[in-house]
């Protein structure tokens, strides 16, 4: 169109294998187009220049790393050493990354006694420290809802209370990952970066997650957290005891969630939030062991789960004393 200022093209097709642009009269317009394209490319290069910092932060090995389930034991050892070296380089501290497997025959469950919990928030603090959370925003995998007595409607709840606890007319309900038997987050993930392990713990491969946050939209319990920026932790506060699928320092742009402190619980210890709780409201154990504390609660208390109607089948229970 509108090319009346350009001499008309000669009929083409008989001119052999030359590129068509060479057949055209070398007008000013063609020269300008080439110049324009070159300028455009240069401007594009300049526009995306912030991306040039990526090769410094992401090694070729990291870029090409396979999904967790496709890694051999040798691959894993190499990756753990690489991550340890990276932490050493960035923060100047020694950390140990390991990957305890699920204990055969164990299925973890958690229960909270709502009559005991008084909303002191020690569990959130412990989670923040244990799991190497980003310090800037007091991140934690737990949210404690302050609810008015006389209602179980979460709409009446408040997680941002900032006053002495417990208040007489309130009760307190901590919510974290419910480790569902039928987890909507796992179905949602487009790349299988999150899955349910044999002991019932839902984990994330922080090096496979693409950061689409569909799992965060799918979770009915607000249990997932996204790393909106590079997590910052003072070097002297880093927990050096790090599980590969749990509390190691997470990369920017990936999803994370409560993993029942698997780096502790798979080694026979208790979750950090339970150890920190001053009221004894938290009960943790093996659902497959008839003698476990958690099974005593299930047998002797009337328990309920959150949002049972959604069919997620949580392994996280709530109960009252009387």
């Amino acid at each position: 169109m509108n090319n009346d200022d350009v001499p008309a093209d000669k009929p083409r097709g008989t001119s052999g294998p030359l590129l068509p642009i060479l057949n055209q009269p070398s007008t000013r317009r063609t020269a300008l187009k080439v110049a324009g394209a070159a300028l455009g490319l240069a401007a594009f290069g300049q526009a995306i220049s912030p991306l040039w910092s990526i090769p410094e932060n992401i090694s070729v090995d990291e870029f090409l790393q396979r999904h967790y389930k496709e890694l051999s034991d040798d691959d894993k050892q190499r990756i753990f050493r690489r991550l340890e070296a990276e932490t050493k380089q960035e923060l100047g501290i020694e950390v140990t990354i390991f990957d305890p497997p699920p204990i055969p025959g164990v299925r973890f469950g958690y229960a909270i006694n709502l009559s005991k919990c008084n909303g002191n928030g020690k569990c959130m603090e412990a989670c923040n420290k244990e799991n190497n959370h980003h310090r800037g925003v007091d991140q934690s995998y737990i949210r404690v809802l302050e609810m008015p007595k006389g209602s179980m409607d979460m709409e009446q709840g408040n997680t941002t209370y900032d006053h002495a606890v417990p208040q007489d007319d309130k009760f307190y309900m901590p919510v974290q990952c419910q480790q569902c038997e039928n987890p909507p987050c796992v179905s949602a993930c487009p790349v299988e970066a999150t899955w349910r392990e044999d002991d019932g713990i839902v984990v994330v491969d922080y090096n496979w997650c693409i950061g689409c946050r569909y799992c965060e939209a799918a979770c009915p319990y607000h249990a997932r957290r996204f790393n909106w920026e590079e997590p910052e932790i003072p070097a002297d506060e880093v927990n050096p005891n790090q599980g590969y699928l749990s509390n190691r320092i997470r990369p920017q742009g990936t999803m994370e969630k409560c993993h029942f402190c698997l780096h502790r619980t798979r080694e026979g210890r208790l979750p950090a939030c339970l150890e920190a709780c001053p009221t004894g409201a938290r009960v943790f154990g093996d659902l497959n062991d008839p003698e476990s504390d958690i099974n005593w609660v299930l047998k002797n208390k009337r328990v309920f789960v959150l949002k049972e109607e959604l069919g997620t089948r949580p392994n996280f229970f709530y109960f009252f004393d009387s």
């Binding site: 870029f63 179905s187 790349v191 496979w208 693409i210 990369p251």
Partner: peptide
């Protein structure tokens, strides 16, 4: 919208690992 666009290839069949048909 991806937090990690450098991992876009994880979405591709064969070289990535797609959660099909569930996701």
């Amino acid at each position: 919208d991806l937090g990690r666009p450098d991992r876009f290839w994880h979405l591709l069949p064969i070289i990535g690992r797609v959660n099909w048909p569930m996701s």
